[in-house]
Amino acid sequence: MFGGKDKLERFEQTILPHLDAAYNLARWLTRNEQDAQDMVQEASLRAFKFFDGFRGGDARSWLLTTVRNTCYTWLQQNRRGQAMTQFDEEIHTADEDSLNPSALALKNADMEMLQQSLEQLPDEFREVIVLRDLEELSYKQIAEVTNVPLGTVMSRLARARARLKQILCSGVKEKS
């Protein structure tokens, strides 16, 4: 086994380069800077504790998995007492063709609106877009991090994007 110092060095070399990825995911899942920092802090220590179980391979996915689990535990506790909307892919997917957006509207949405629209998505939809379009993970890596089958990643991502488009377009319409 590795002693404290060697382990720390290896951890700093392999895992810490992915702190930005960790923070970005936590920030989008918690939608709040301070909580995101707490999540990443906690997840990093957890990751360090179980670093002996890391058998090489994709360090970013490995860290993101821990960050995601930490965030979900936190989300469950924070939602306690509030009306909890159970995530359901079918319910959360509205009829895609009910709106016919012009490509122009999508191009003109400002950054604030983009951020707000993404934040409005259910957690499971938001995270899949963050992992794919911001973090640029492959479907296989996303399946690993979110612990769902590859087919689910594919369909969830398609639904998430359709939903995001819908929110964006209705936002643009309201504004104009």
Binding site: G4, K5, K7, L8, F11, E12, L16, L19, D20, A22, Y23, N24, R27, W28, A36, Q37, V40, Q41, S44, L45, F48, K49, M111, L114, Q115, L118, L134
Partner: peptide, 21 residues
Amino acid sequence: LYFKAPDTLQKSIRHSLRQAA
């Protein structure tokens, strides 16, 4: 839209990792 980890967070994580080690 990509939120980078603040420097203070980086520092405090490195600090607590040293403690844990």
